[in-house]
Computed example of a mutant assay.
Amino acid sequence: MSQKPEGRPPESIEQAILDLLAQQGPGRTISPMDVARALGSDHPDDWGPLMQPVRRTAVKLMKEGKLLITRKGRPVDPDDFRGVYRLSLPA
């Protein structure tokens, strides 16, 4: 079983996001669930609680210009988006 989300350093989430994006290459996207599963495991009890910390970290990285959060292929407002979203490196 993985660490509790509140016990996981934000830097490890940030690094996981950036590492997965680097593996995908330019123009490719990842799901926040991919990140949560990489940090936890395939079991929902492990990755489920990581979804909000992953989202908060993705918002921070988008505001820093390090990634894009998209919904239906279009960049979102990092302070106001809902639903299914994807992460990618900026062009």
Rank of each mutant, 00 (worst) to 15 (best):
S2G: 05
S2C: 08
K4F: 10
K4W: 04
G7M: 09
G7E: 07
G7I: 09
R8C: 07
P9S: 04
P10D: 10
P10K: 07
E11I: 08
S12Q: 15
S12Y: 05
I13V: 13
I13A: 10
E14P: 08
E14Y: 08
A16M: 01
A16V: 12
I17W: 07
I17L: 06
L18Q: 09
L18A: 12
D19E: 11
L20Y: 07
L20N: 10
L20G: 08
L21C: 04
A22G: 00
Q23W: 15
Q23A: 14
Q24W: 07
Q24P: 03
G25W: 12
G25V: 06
P26I: 02
P26S: 14
P26F: 00
R28M: 10
R28G: 09
T29P: 02
T29H: 07
T29I: 15
T29Y: 06
I30L: 14
I30V: 14
I30W: 05
P32F: 10
D34Q: 10
D34E: 11
V35M: 06
A36L: 11
R37G: 08
A38F: 05
A38K: 15
A38E: 10
A38V: 12
L39A: 15
L39G: 14
G40V: 05
G40W: 00
G40N: 05
S41F: 00
D42L: 13
D42R: 07
H43D: 08
P44K: 13
P44C: 13
D45P: 13
D45C: 00
D46S: 06
D46M: 06
W47H: 09
W47G: 09
W47R: 04
G48Q: 14
G48E: 14
G48L: 04
P49A: 14
L50F: 15
M51I: 11
Q52R: 14
Q52G: 05
Q52D: 15
Q52L: 09
P53S: 08
P53A: 08
V54T: 13
V54F: 07
V54H: 06
R55A: 09
R56M: 12
R56Y: 04
R56L: 11
R56P: 08
T57S: 15
T57I: 09
T57E: 06
A58M: 14
K60V: 10
L61I: 11
M62R: 09
K63W: 03
K63Q: 13
E64Q: 11
G65R: 12
K66M: 12
K66L: 13
L68V: 12
I69Y: 06
T70R: 11
T70G: 03
T70L: 15
R71Y: 14
K72Y: 01
G73W: 03
G73F: 01
G73T: 03
G73L: 06
R74Q: 13
R74I: 13
P75M: 03
P75C: 01
V76H: 05
V76G: 03
V76F: 02
D77K: 15
P78C: 01
P78V: 03
P78I: 01
P78H: 04
P78M: 02
D79L: 02
D79C: 02
D79S: 14
D80P: 13
D80W: 00
F81Q: 10
F81C: 04
R82Q: 14
R82D: 04
R82Y: 03
G83R: 01
G83D: 01
G83Q: 05
Y85G: 03
R86N: 00
L87I: 00
L87E: 06
S88M: 09
S88F: 03
L89S: 04
L89A: 06
L89M: 08
P90Y: 01
A91D: 15
